[in-house]
Design a protein around this nucleic acid. Structure first.
Length: 947
RNA sequence: GCAGGGGUGGCAGAGCCUGGCCAAAUGCGACGGGCUUAGGACCCGUUUCCUUUAGUGGAUGCAAGAGUUCAAAUCUCUUCCCCUGCACCA
């Protein structure tokens, strides 16, 4: 058994002692690998190995390919999560404590986690330890934490530049807001961690006839305005007349309160809903005067509490009006007006619609109730269903009938009408919490507030976008299929709020009252790794913008900067050199969840700040890790802390399973069985190496050449796979196929120590990227000195790759297979017959020529003629060529000769006899008298089973 | 709704870009056999249907439908369904 734990500890200590992962600029080609730094609210679990292990695999591979490789690491602590974390600990939150216990965090440590600073300190320590346990080839001298003052200086400089370039702007922005605590709330601040989903609604002003006031109706479908027949209010609710933006409005009392966070609202007086029923309203779209009805379904707390009624296109509206009529309410004459044309029920299958045919196609909402086998008295859930169906079909396939918008699709008309109404002052946009009620941790309902002094980064800036697109074209995205996602993200990203009033982090230089939001302060930090270890001893206050200007932008001169900042000349110069060196070639790694935020912001900020030469070169996105078919999560309790995994399973097997068991972008699957499979294979490799001394060298046999061919082909393929970071393909070749090949080699009597040693030496080295410890151990077991981690990546010897040798080996396998099949069929049908001997006949060389010629000429006649000219009998030539002509387009040249095949099968005779338990004879067709000999084809000898 | 990624055999999951060697790798499961006192492990075989007393031939088949082609899991179009993201949150 391999003792992973002690092997890992041993090599980690050796690497550390030799400081082999602490690179400095040199004349070698640089390669810098960075992975998204972890947020410090948890220890690592085995799933984290996916991203960090993939990045490490690339780092180690590139190192072996002769690059000077830098793989630095830092820690993210800015933002609100550890603030909330500290509060929860203060309150003794049992759920959180239970989660921490999964990671074996001792009680006395948990007790101390009442300040975010301590939490950060604790997890920085823990995660670094976890990463060291993982055997990552990280240069720990460059460690940084995003809440360090030194980091703050760097961020301040970054935002100073962004501001100077005009990318920092100020404006209005809707946010989730707690009216009680008076601050913005995000997901981390709500009960059950619910994200308040903010949605925009159009609120249409319906002037009250004869009054200086309007109803204001919120709606998702302003395009249906032309179909409004009346206004609905809840007659049992309290309404107010209020003043907003210099106009008077009727809204529900609770709506007035909610709206007051978005606009200035002054309540003039309260009134019961009933009082509104006597009023008339003017539709701003078509100036029709419409009445006000009581709507049983109107909720005062939703939107404005006043609803415009479009009965032809809203089942609720239609049902409410019909029920009013039925109850004897005087509605006056209602003229239902169809404004969207669509094939009703088209998305439903015939089965669910059954016999129901929409009769009232001029009144779509009724027609929708009809296809659903119901009517105006349906329960609310049914009406809700009909509403959704109608809305979906109309917006998907509907064509507008409204004058001026004829034939338009609904979404297009919606945007046009919305814009027209808002621009002409007939409507305003309001925001609602779409998934209301969302409760703040303090217990109050979250509302939407429009913050008007919000700072944004204007990622929508066309010139900026253009720069990013330009760089993106040059960039390498791995895997290539993630490329479309990035292109979409670059197009989509727009204004992004960059400041918050709370949380840990750096204050915005242009407005010290706010803190830079935590994703925005971690976009160009990889550049900071290149210099941080050089300025650790510099007084933080000396890190003035002039310093960074020189280091990152080459502005000014070293003397000048040394004078203004007081930093030593040599330090400044080394920083500039270090940045300019390492940033030539970079690779950024993360999970796919960061494509639409961090990774895109990474591209934008780099292009905004740095010179072209230092723009991003490569981004790698990898999938996540699933555990036994389920997503790993603390609440499911299926998290395996990294320390446990290292101890119970071993880091190398874990790294192999997680980084190589799926496509780069697909989620990989951790399971006991997959880990065991990997371990068995590693054990097998080790056992062969442990016994290597027992194999003597000698003259090479066919199977030795075969193994040479295999190893060199393997190197070729593994190298190509690593270049594309296709770790799954790489591992299939290097690990899984190696086992199969070795077993076959021994099966076929292979026993040459020289060949085996070379094979294993290469396999051991090629395991280095994903299984660095085992690789190191095997490398040394083979008697090598020096670190595998620093060895040259194997180079294939293409002269040893032989199509012919491999074909011959396949010939043996395929023949054995065919013999078994035929054998079985014969003995099944005649159980009393006992075959005693098998005779194989390999095909004459003229048949090989036939293949080659036919493949080239595609001409049956010509091929036959050419064979006859060579002295082949006309009958045999015609018969054979006729047979192979059927698969003319699949024919290939054959690399073996009759002689080759004869020899190969001859050498394998012993093997075949053992496998079959019968005598085997091999003949050449040109010399055979067997009746079945003519059936022989290249690489497919004829078989005769003799009884 | 918008954007991105998908839909393959009992399951998981390759193949699709670059059409033919694909009844479709590999792993798991199931079944049969070997080994064993027995179980596990291991080894061999089977795992769409029909056909074949010699290594075979055929049908159906990769979400559904249509198209392009001598040839489609693979290319094009349409439809249906699933997953992820949609922001101030790391």
């Amino acid at each position: 058994m391999i003792d992973y734990s002690s092997i890992e500890k041993k090599w980690q200590a050796e690497w550390e002692k030799a400081r082999i992962f602490e690179p400095e600029p040199s004349d070698k080609k640089p390669f810098m690998v960075t992975a998204a730094f972890p947020y410090v609210n948890t220890a690592l679990h085995i799933g984290h190995l996916r991203t960090y292990g993939t990045a490490d695999a690339l780092a180690r591979y590139k190192r072996m390919r002769g690059y000077n490789v830098l793989y630095p690491m830092g820690f993210h602590a800015t933002g609100t999560p550890i603030l909330a974390f500290a509060k929860r600990i203060q309150k003794g939150d049992s759920e959180l404590i239970r989660e921490l216990k999964i990671f074996h965090i001792p009680d006395d440590e948990i007790k101390k986690m009442v300040t975010p600073e301590y939490i950060a300190e604790y997890f920085v320590k823990t995660v670094e330890k976890d990463m060291r346990t993982s055997g990552l080839s990280v240069d720990w001298r460059r460690k940084l934490v995003s809440i360090e003052p030194i980091f703050g200086k760097f961020i301040e400089w970054q935002f100073k530049i962004l501001n100077e370039k005009g990318y920092l702007t100020k404006g209005k922005h809707p946010v989730g807001w707690c009216p009680n605590e008076n601050n913005a709330v995000g997901m981390h601040d709500t009960q059950h961690d619910v994200e308040p989903e903010i949605e925009e609604e159009t609120a249409i002003k319906f002037k009250v006839d004869g009054e200086d006031a309007s109803f204001i109706c919120s709606t998702y479908r302003p395009e249906t305005l032309d179909g409004v027949t009346n206004i609905f209010v809840n007659e049992g609710s309290t309404y107010v007349l209020c003043r907003m933006d210099g106009e008077n409005f009727y809204v529900s009392k609770s709506a007035a309160n909610i709206l007051s966070y978005q606009r200035g609202v002054e309540v003039s007086r309260e009134l019961p809903g009933k009082e509104l029923l006597s009023k008339k309203a003017i539709n701003p779209f078509n100036n029709e005067v419409v009445p006000v009805f009581p709507g049983y379904f109107v909720k005062e707390s939703l939107g404005t509490g006043v609803v415009m009624s479009v009965p032809a296109h809203a089942p609720f509206d239609y049902a409410a009006i019909e029920r009013l009529k039925a109850s004897g309410y005087n509605t006056g004459e209602i003229r239902y007006k169809r404004i969207i044309d669509v094939q009703i029920g088209r998305s439903l299958s015939d089965v669910s619609v059954g016999e129901a045919k929409p009769v009232h196609v001029d009144l779509p909402s009724l027609a929708y109730l009809e296809v659903l086998h119901t009517d105006v008295n349906a329960i609310d859930d049914m009406l809700e269903f009909a509403t959704k169906l109608q809305y979906r079909e109309e917006s998907h396939w509907g064509k507008m009938l409204v004058k001026g918008y004829e034939g338009m699709s609904e979404p297009e008309a919606r945007e046009k009408i919305k814009k027209q109404m808002v621009d002409s002052g007939k409507a305003i946009m309001i925001y609602i919490v779409q998934n209301a009620p969302v409760k703040c941790r303090c217990g109050y309902d979250v509302v939407v507030k429009i913050v008007d002094n919000q700072w944004f980064l204007n990622y929508g800036d066309p010139k900026w976008k253009e720069m990013v697109r330009q760089n993106f074209e040059q960039m390498r995205i791995l895997p290539p299929k993630a490329r479309n996602g990035f292109a979409a993200a670059i197009d989509w990203i727009d204004l992004r709020a960059v400041a918050r009033s709370q949380g840990l982090g750096t204050r915005l230089p242009v407005d010290k009252s706010v803190i830079i939001e935590s994703l925005s302060d971690s976009t160009i930090y990889p550049a900071f790794y290149t210099i941080i270890s050089l300025i650790r001893n510099v007084d933080v206050e000396k890190l003035r913008p002039e310093f960074f200007d020189y280091v990152y932008l080459g502005k000014g001169g070293v003397d000048e900067v040394a004078k203004t900042t007081g930093i030593e000349y040599e330090t400044i110069k080394r920083c500039r050199d270090s940045f300019a060196y390492w940033y030539q070639e970079t690779s950024r790694h993360s999970g796919p969840d960061l494509i639409f935020n961090h990774l895109t912001m990474y591209m934008f900020n780099h292009t905004a700040i740095f010179d072209k030469a230092y723009w991003p070169k490569q981004i790698v996105v990898n999938g996540m890790v699933m555990s036994e078919g389920e997503k790993m999560s603390k609440s499911l309790g299926n998290i395996i802390p990294l320390v446990d995994g290292a101890e119970r399973i071993g880091i190398d097997p874990l790294r192999i399973v997680e980084t190589t068991s799926a496509d780069l972008l697909s989620d990989s699957e951790y399971s006991e069985s997959s880990v065991n499979g990997v371990k068995e294979r590693l054990e097998y490799l080790k056992s062969v190496i442990d016994n290597i001394a027992g194999y003597e060298s000698g003259e090479f046999k066919h199977i030795d050449y075969w193994l040479y061919s295999k190893i060199n082909r393997k190197i070729e393929r593994a190298t190509a796979a690593m270049d594309a970071l296709e770790l799954r393909d790489y591992a299939t070749d290097v690990l899984y196929n190696s086992i199969i090949e070795l077993k076959r080699y021994f099966d076929r009597g292979g026993s040459n120590g020289t060949v085996l040693r070379e094979y294993l030496q290469n396999v051991a080295l090629m395991l280095q990227p994903v299984a660095p410890h085992i690789s190191e151990e095997l490398h040394h077991s083979l008697g090598n000195e020096g670190f595998a981690a620093l060895e040259k990546w194997p180079i294939p010897d293409s002269s040893m790759i032989s199509e012919k040798v491999e074909s011959e080996e396949e010939l043996v396998t395929a023949s054995l297979d065919d013999i078994k099949r035929a054998w079985e069929l014969v003995t099944k049908k005649s159980p009393d017959k006992r075959p005693s001997r098998v005779s194989l006949v390999v095909a004459s060389d003229w048949k090989r020529r036939a293949h080659g010629e036919l493949a080239k000429s595609k001409d049956v006649g010509k091929t036959i003629a050419s064979l006859r000219a060579d002295g082949v009998s006309p009958e045999a030539a015609a018969k054979y060529v006729g047979k192979i002509a059927k698969e003319m387009n699949r024919l290939r040249e054959v690399s073996t000769t009759e002689e080759d095949e004869f020899k190969a099968l001859g050498e394998a005779k012993g093997y075949l006899e053992k496998a079959l338990g019968a005598e085997v004879a091999v003949e050449m067709e040109s010399k055979s008298k067997s009746a079945r000999a003519e059936r022989a084809a290249p690489l497919k000898p004829s078989i005769e089973i003799i009884f």
